[in-house]
């Protein structure tokens, strides 16, 4: 109950402050040796409060680059990125670190847990430095791992490890949750469990969520589906009704 109350409050808050993460004309050019790779060619994108967006696209389409820039892991070559009226493109290294620390949660295909810390301690890594975190136990309960909190990563299955990663990402109560192929290394049954955890976080905490996937079935759980090809947004679709993650199958 407490969580839901909290989430509603935050959702109201978010609307009041127009907490959207807004990108305008993002381009990103990499130089590898003499070859120039234009990963993004002018992308406009907005992640609204409480929204769940799925980004679809083939390998090399630029979706990960977009996600990394949105999360403050990378900087665009041109274009602007604003969050809460703050211009993130003008932020320095420290500014981006603070943005990630306070506002963004990441989930990757490879779970990137610290092997020497237990599930609870991996989550506590974040709660110790965040401004208004939930407790590590609460976060793990949210992903259904309250029984496994004292286990080390080596003692957890892949799906469990990914759910610890989700708990770690949302424990700070971020406004934005960015997931890059969160089910890529998992079988379908485990993958659905992980998606369900992300969905629950999105619904109960009102966290704006973006999921990168090449699995089109996942798209049906989103509010909005964005297709990316060759560094540009190819199409955007709104789902009239979100399908629950537990109803997905592949």
């Amino acid at each position: 109950m407490c969580l839901i109350y909290n989430a509603e409050n935050r959702a109201v808050d978010a609307k009041a402050h127009n907490e959207s993460l807004i990108a305008h004309g993002l381009t990103k050019t990499y130089h590898t040796g003499e070859i120039e790779i234009r990963a993004l060619r002018g992308v406009d994108f907005e992640l609204k409060p409480g929204e769940l967006v799925v980004l679809l696209g083939p390998s090399g389409s630029g979706k990960s680059t977009l996600l990394n820039i949105l999360g403050g892991l990378d900087t665009p070559t041109a274009g602007t990125l604003t969050f809460r009226d703050h211009n993130l493109t003008a932020a320095d290294e420290h500014g981006l670190t603070m943005f990630r620390r306070e506002h963004v949660g990441f989930v990757f295909q490879f779970y990137n847990l610290i092997p020497s810390l237990t599930a609870r301690e991996n989550v506590a890594l974040v709660t110790e430095i965040a401004a208004a975190p939930m407790s590590a136990e609460e976060a793990l309960a949210l992903v259904g791992l309250e029984e496994r909190i004292h286990h080390f990563p080596a003692e957890l299955s892949g799906g469990e490890q990914q759910r610890v990663a989700i708990a770690r990402a949302i424990a700070k109560q971020p406004e934005v949750l960015l997931c890059d192929e969160p089910t890529g290394a998992l079988d379908s049954k485990t993958g659905i469990l992980v998606l369900a955890a992300i969905e629950r976080v999105n619904r109960e905490l009102g966290t704006s969520t973006a999921i990168i996937t090449h699995n089109t079935i996942v798209a049906s759980m989103a509010d909005r589906v964005v297709r990316i090809a060759d560094g540009l947004i190819a199409s955007t679709e709104h789902n009239a009704k979100r399908v629950s993650a537990s109803e997905l199958a592949w």
Partner: peptide, 16 residues
């Protein structure tokens, strides 16, 4: 390196 990069992504500063 991987562990440290993860921490950076989680919002840890270079000093941390």
């Amino acid at each position: 390196g991987r562990e440290l990069a993860t921490l950076r992504v989680l919002g840890f500063t270079r000093a941390e």
